[in-house]
Design a protein around this nucleic acid. Structure first.
Lengths: 175, 175
DNA sequence: TCTAAATTTCAGTTTCAACAGAAATGAGTG
DNA sequence: CACTCATTTCTGTTGAAACTGAAATTTAGA
């Protein structure tokens, strides 16, 4: 049981990148592996293919499931849990990740900014510029937050069209 | 020399978040501090306000400068370097960060995918589904990459308009 | 050119998350 | 109800990056 060179390269790269996307190597590697696998895998196969501890696989899969990126299936006459990745629509994957990012990176900051904006108004000694900048940042995060939500709602084909149109939209809007 | 409660809260939060955005705490804290500061600060002031080592400030500022988020200024009759953040246009900040992300998160993966897509085609033993999924992912990254570049070019007011219009654009496109 | 202030580099330490392996728990079967 | 296979939880270890403080370097002015 082993991986083809190209698949191996993919999985390793994904693992390295994972750390830059807010998860850890193993989680990213497993996601990659399941994404590329034509059939569901069970935990021990993953242990084999990636050479990581069984417990590590367990924890990582749990994380992937919590993100909604991986789901469990079963095979008749086999007690073990099998896992497969979302994969038919890459954009759906993307949407899930966007949602995660919003929740972990945007929402906490948004509420912090709201509190700060309130609080700083009461501070007489604080410079006007500082107050303004907090407000600006708050407005920005509110807008971005809204935009993330919009992306969630847009169905894949529409999203593709929008990006393809891209620069044309810009021109129309500037008229 | 000290920070108001609201500013303190902002800076601390920014520091924590920084780790999730691909930098470290100190870099993020300094960025926050400079962003909120109505006047440029020199390194020792930052040391004071954030209670970090002088060398740490030096390294962090260097990083911020390399991103283009912070620039150096001077004051007449003072040898020390003063620093200030981009700040008048939050969207400009955002654009800088987007560019960084693209470079660090997207580009390497894009070229990996290109290589893998080439390579996997030659692998007879590899499943058709696997090949397809690599291609899908490649297409996806190419599209996103293009989209990042588009955002770079769009001037702030236009970008704001686009997001405000948002859902309406979707509807028009689906007609 | 020399000195003092300012900055950067470097080496050692600290911290924290990822991970392995063992122990514990749970679930299906005879 | 016991036994076995599968999964999860827990604890200690490891490794990588952040950070400190000291030493080295650079820079501006006398």
């Amino acid at each position: 049981m082993n991986l083809s060179p190209a698949v191996q390269k993919y999985v390793l790269h994904w693992g390295e990148m994972g750390t830059r996307w807010g998860t850890n190597r193993t989680v990213a590697q497993i996601q990659a592996l399941l994404y590329l696998s034509p059939k569901p895998l069970h935990a021990d196969e993953i242990v084999d293919l990636l050479s990581v501890a069984r417990s590590n696989v367990s924890t990582s899969i749990r994380e992937l499931q919590s993100y909604g990126l991986v789901k469990m299936t079963h095979i008749l006459g086999d007690r073990r849990d099998y896992f497969e990745s979302l994969g038919d629509d890459v954009w759906e994957l993307f949407r899930v990740i966007i949602a995660q990012r919003k929740q972990r990176e945007l929402n906490p900051t948004l509420s912090m900014l709201q509190k700060c904006a309130m609080e700083v108004e009461k501070e007489k000694q604080t410079d006007k510029v500082t107050k303004e900048r907090i407000t600006n940042m708050l407005n920005f995060f509110e807008t971005i937050s809204d935009w993330y939500e919009q992306i969630q709602e847009i169905p894949t084909p529409t999203l593709q069209k929008i990006i393809k149109l891209g620069r044309r939209i810009t021109k129309v809007i500037n008229r």
